[in-house]
Design a protein around this nucleic acid. Structure first.
Lengths: 334, 334
DNA sequence: ATCGGTTTCGCAACCGTTATCGATACCGGA
DNA sequence: TCCGGTATCGATAACGGTTGCGAAACCGAT
């Protein structure tokens, strides 16, 4: 940890001007192969790490894409991220993740923080934001993509699925298979707008056949197998006639399955189960749980592509509204 | 999206100098409450987002902490992250995550990228790095904390557990309970150094009682319940006398449990199972799986505290070497 | 009215890199 | 040998804020 090593030092050591050193290290043109090699060598030996803060300020460009998601524990967003990373890998852009904790105020502050770094693009989960956030998203001149959800009014680009439709679709499947005493277990609504939409779509679907939910349970905090199991146990105890439960997340339905296993209930004979997301953890369980695929990876990929395209066209690209179709898989529990 | 709104514009609108506006918006002293309120109001109305690139260049300070982890899908690092976030929440610092994909070359490039933003600190998982990475970590003047592992030679600060010890400890427990035909299922070693250390510690522990592994299986790619189940099935098929399997991850041991459930094997009567990490997903399963807690949240907290302290002392703080003790929980499967 | 001590504010000089554009070196052809 | 054109390089001025002072304004007390 000697002295801070600056570009000017590297340049001096190489016997060239700052400019030439800068160009060489960035791979910019107008530098002879020989000088470039020499400068690179010197930079390598001395362990020069360029100061991108200064560089970005000067070039007015930042090779970062801000990605704002509600949580990283929930199994679901990492996969969106991997879609984004996969596409960005072929470009100089890098994703930077911010976590909003399912809290719109926190989201506002995270987005403000990210925008203050002037990223090349912003990808944010969900269409619901504070007024201030919406204004920021409108005013910023980097491309903005709202992902995961299409039921609402996007600020700019939008890629996702309709959770209303997903909920309704699952209701139809459940009804088609003859279940009539149906329970719902989901997160506290104010936290998770998409879960609420699935719930609304689901009850809509029931209402279309003049049915209502036989039972309903909300929980707060992160979803977990544990909570899924407990709430299922409680619900079945107080409502033994239930023949099907729809969960707002696969993690919860796995918990439901675990309860049934432990209680010796046959699935779907005694009770049918269905979740949402088509998470990885569904693979390898005793029964293939019914679920709806949320197209997470593809959503990430498409969002990233919008950012890339917008970079090429210089922000003059047309508005994208990508509504993917969530596929239901019935598994063995419906 | 009118014109870029700069500090100078806000200042002009408020009828003050740039300096006063800058101070007001940063909450710096030497601004009267009245002027400050006025400036803030104007900034709010017009949706001014400060340019932190310029700010950081000028103030030579960046309120970001770089966190480099191998993966976000693996269930384990998000919890380290949440420990970091929890501690940083009380400070102006924000974590920024980079993913290295269990690849040291990629890690090098991610770390170089992060350091080029001159963060206030760097937290990186693991003690194994390329030579170039080590040099960067030594040369940088921000505090560096290597986490998760203590078996090795840290560049500077270090917080983690001994995976050698964790493996050995589990071996002792398994042997103490009378198991003698023991199998191991783990990730391909070159990818995951900590898994390899647990493996080494485990075989050491067996060797201490003149035992060797009865069977061994490696897989590549991410751990999953699915693979855990498949590999367990294969191993038990070719080696029916096995009485215990140790997995390099809980995700895998859950898969093992699922196989046993499906195959009608009694656990631990027919076969005992043990994993590692003490992941959330172990809660709510039919049986409480044996595991070792990896202290993930606490490791994150402590690492973040080191960064904070170093900020106070101006980098003059002493070297920290925190070796936490991983607690084994036997559950019901040993 | 004068004075010392605070507040409150603004000027100027940076922070480390890159864009711009002009200067110089080099090269083959006339 | 001279010339136009192309490689290669360097001086200078940004980029948008903040630090470090000094200046001005304000205050109650003398």
């Amino acid at each position: 940890m000697t002295k801070k090593l600056l570009l000017k030092d590297v340049a001096k050591l190489a016997g060239v001007s700052e400019m030439t050193a800068s160009r060489a290290l960035r791979g910019a043109p107008d530098v002879s192969a020989k000088t470039k090699a020499k400068i690179e060598e010197i930079a390598r030996i001395h362990g020069y790490v360029p100061n991108r803060i200064a560089g970005s300020l000067s070039s007015q460009s930042v090779n970062l894409v801000a990605v704002v998601v509600p949580s990283l524990n929930s199994f679901v967003f990492p996969e969106v991220l991997s879609g984004i990373s996969a596409v960005l890998k072929e470009s100089p852009l890098k994703p930077v993740v911010g976590v909003s904790g399912y809290d719109l105020e926190e989201e506002e502050s995270v987005i403000r923080e990210m925008l203050s770094w002037r990223p090349s693009g912003l990808i944010v989960a969900g269409l619901e934001h504070t007024e201030v956030t919406r204004r920021m998203l409108q005013q910023t001149d980097c491309p903005v993509v709202e992902v995961m959800d299409v039921d609402g009014d996007p600020v700019r680009h939008c890629v996702g699925i309709s959770h209303l439709q997903a909920g309704r679709g699952m209701a139809e499947q459940i009804l088609a298979r003859g279940y009539r005493n149906i329970g719902f277990i989901g997160t506290k609504m104010p936290q998770d707008f998409r879960a609420r939409k699935r719930f609304d779509g689901f009850t809509d679907g029931l209402a279309a056949q003049s049915l209502t939910l036989a039972d309903l349970e909300h929980y707060s905090g992160e979803s977990s197998i544990q909570t899924g199991r407990q709430l299922t146990s409680q619900m079945l105890a107080r409502n033994p006639r239930l023949d099907c439960i729809y969960y707002s997340s696969d993690v919860m339905s796995v918990g439901g399955l675990m309860h049934c296993l432990a209680a010796g209930l046959s699935v779907p004979g005694d009770i049918a189960l269905a979740g949402f997301n088509n998470l990885q953890i569904l693979q390898g369980l005793p029964l293939q749980l019914a679920t709806t695929d949320a197209c997470r990876h593809e959503i990430g990929e498409r969002a990233a592509r919008i950012i890339l395209k917008s970079r090429e066209t210089g922000g003059a690209e047309g508005l994208v509204f990508d509504r993917l179709t969530p596929a239901i898989s019935l598994g063995e529990t419906l």
